[in-house]
Design a protein around this nucleic acid. Structure first.
Lengths: 172, 172
DNA sequence: CGATAATTGTTATCAACTATACCAAATATC
DNA sequence: GATATTTGGTATAGTTGATAACAATTATCG
């Protein structure tokens, strides 16, 4: 141990005696984030949590998580694909994709069909109900979720943000 | 069920017959992301994973996770605080913070000291070793991790990105 | 052709992270 | 001084991510 085990709280370094440029935080109240505010990963994680939170709120009437929504979107845009292809594209491991599909299939949003060519693979298709739910979800996401994002950031910033995040997701 | 249970794969909608503006993806190869590329939350999550991945690589010699690094940073900037204050600031639930602190304390990076004022709370302090590790971690993060981010994005974009993410993390 | 390798969906399992309820000790409130 | 609140902690459960292994099927190649 390199420190004494009891702290008289008077040991706190005297702040605001010498008037240093310090973020607004007294001995009480909010803590200083320090270089944490400059850590991209930190803000990235915090922003992601907030955005997902809002997504869940906006699409709550349809009971869809971001991951489930992304699956439905992908199935719609890529008919005739099997589980491995969809899972890989979304960065979901095949074993973990099974339960996810079970949930969607049990709600009659999609279905597995045996491929005629390869009897190992399951071709994934949206059901009519799946298509309907996806359509409603798209509207909720566009009109409530993304709309709010654009409102907060401004359209230009929103586009720039999207571009930078995509760049990071790819080339980083 | 609204769909037949077997799929002759010939049902795939004919693409590239009519020359539509379509992202580069044939019947084989990469799948089309569709409106997924426009979903901010999607790129946000993907970017966050990549950035954390790189953080872990860069700071691997010190065996620090992003969460652990953020705790050390906060302890350094905010001496004399207790577990609840640190945990709350980082969005960590107090029960979950216990094991995290145990791990850091077992590595002699920080220590809990009973407060003289309030015998319930544990004042958290960095040990000398904790300060040393933090100093090394800061350098690794700045020179390897953040440096690479700035290189990929460009300094101006990096700053703009940080600003927008901070805005989302706060006002959203 | 036939032996061997690779792929697909799946199960089981584990680690990590998140979230809630609850508890004892200590402190605050009235 | 009775009651409520706070603090650190335990137990626990849910969620997500990751690995190993397996049967069925298909691909590869001698």
């Amino acid at each position: 141990m390199t420190v004494s085990k009891t702290a008289s709280d008077a040991v706190r370094p005297q702040r605001s005696l010498r008037r240093e440029p310090v973020d607004p935080a007294g001995d009480d109240g909010m803590l200083q984030l320090g270089e944490l505010s400059g850590l991209l990963g930190y803000s990235l994680k915090r922003a992601q949590l907030k955005v997902f939170e809002d997504f869940l709120r906006c699409v709550a009437p349809l009971q869809l998580t971001p991951a489930q929504f992304s699956v439905l979107l992908l199935l719609d845009k890529n008919p005739g694909r099997n589980q491995t292809e969809i899972a890989n594209t979304l960065g979901i491991l095949r074993p973990n994709f099974v339960a996810m599909l079970d949930a969607l299939e049990s709600r009659d949003l999609c279905a597995r069909m045996r491929s005629a060519n390869d009897r190992r693979s399951h071709i994934l298709v949206l059901t009519d109900r799946g298509r309907a739910v996806l359509a409603r979800a798209k509207k909720l996401v566009a009109n409530k979720h993304e709309a709010r994002l654009i409102e907060v950031l401004g359209p230009a910033n929103h586009a720039a943000l999207l571009e930078m995040l995509a760049k990071l997701a790819q080339e980083f």
